[in-house]
Simulated assay, not measured.
Amino acid sequence: MQKYLLSIYQPDGGPPPPEILDPIVRDLDALNDEMRAAGAWVFAAGLHPPGTATVLRPKGADVLMTDGPYTEGKEHLGGFTVIQAPDLDAALAWGRRLAGVTTLPVEVRPIQ
Score class of each variant (00 low, 15 high):
K59W: 05
L88Q: 08
R36K: 12
T81R: 00
G14Q: 12
A85H: 02
H76E: 04
A44R: 06
P110Q: 04
K3D: 15
E75P: 06
P69C: 06
D29N: 11
P15Q: 09
E75S: 13
V106G: 03
D87N: 12
G39K: 06
L88C: 01
R36P: 00
W41I: 10
V101Y: 02
E72L: 10
T66D: 13
L28M: 11
A53H: 11
P16F: 03
G46F: 08
P86F: 00
P18A: 14
L31F: 09
A53S: 15
P17L: 11
K74H: 06
P17Q: 08
E72F: 06
E75T: 10
R36H: 06
M35F: 10
V25A: 09
E34V: 06
D87V: 04
L77M: 10
P105K: 00
S7H: 03
G100D: 03
A61I: 11
L5F: 12
P110A: 08
I8P: 01
V82E: 02
A93E: 07
L56Y: 15
V55W: 05
Y70C: 10
A37S: 12
M65H: 05
A44G: 15
R109I: 02
T81A: 09
P50E: 09
S7A: 15
A99C: 04
H48N: 14
I8M: 14
Q2T: 15
D12P: 00
L77C: 06
S7Q: 14
A91N: 07
V106F: 02
R26C: 04
P18K: 12
P23A: 09
